[in-house]
Amino acid sequence: MLPGLVRTIQATEAIKVILKSESTLSGRLLMIDAMEMRFRELSSRRNTSCPACGLEPSIRGLSGEYSDACQSPASDSSVPLLTVEALQQRLAAGESIFLLDVREPNE
């Protein structure tokens, strides 16, 4: 249950970043006590001398065994892409298709 909760929070934060929302968790640490179902936030300051995210980072990418594991070709997606034309052909062929539109009404 806990990984699903954390993934949902991460997805929400990613959407807020994409939408350029000012209410992200950036600069804060969210702590989850699943047994008591309590959430706590801790504020943190950016370490300007951090080698990964500081003002002059020296770590600019993954190295070693992690680089191969984290790089997958774009065609190796678990969500298949479907063009409008391909969808139209499948519908015309009578194929039963379930589409889930997750856009907001203003989109």
Rank of each mutant, 00 (worst) to 15 (best):
G94W: 02
D101F: 05
M31R: 14
P51C: 08
L25P: 02
V84N: 13
V6G: 05
A92E: 14
R38K: 15
A14Y: 06
E36Y: 06
D33I: 00
Q89K: 14
I32G: 01
A52H: 09
E13C: 03
Q88G: 04
D33P: 02
R38T: 07
Y66G: 00
P3N: 10
L29D: 10
A11I: 05
R40I: 03
L82Q: 05
R90W: 01
P80I: 01
L30H: 10
E13M: 09
S63H: 03
S78H: 10
K16C: 04
N47A: 06
G64Q: 00
Q89F: 01
G54C: 06
S96G: 02
F39K: 00
L81C: 03
R103E: 00
P105H: 07
K20T: 05
M31K: 15
M37W: 08
T24R: 03
G94N: 02
K16I: 04
M31P: 00
D76S: 13
L87S: 02
P3A: 12
R38H: 10
E104I: 02
A92W: 01
S23D: 15
M37E: 15
T83D: 04
V79D: 06
R7H: 07
L87F: 05
S67N: 08
R103A: 07
R46N: 10
L2H: 07
R40S: 13
I18S: 04
E107L: 04
A74P: 02
E95D: 12
P51L: 10
T83E: 04
I32L: 15
C70W: 08
L99E: 07
C50P: 00
Q71N: 10
G4K: 12
S67V: 15
L19D: 12
S96I: 06
P80L: 05
L100V: 13
T24S: 09
P57M: 01
L5K: 11
E95V: 08
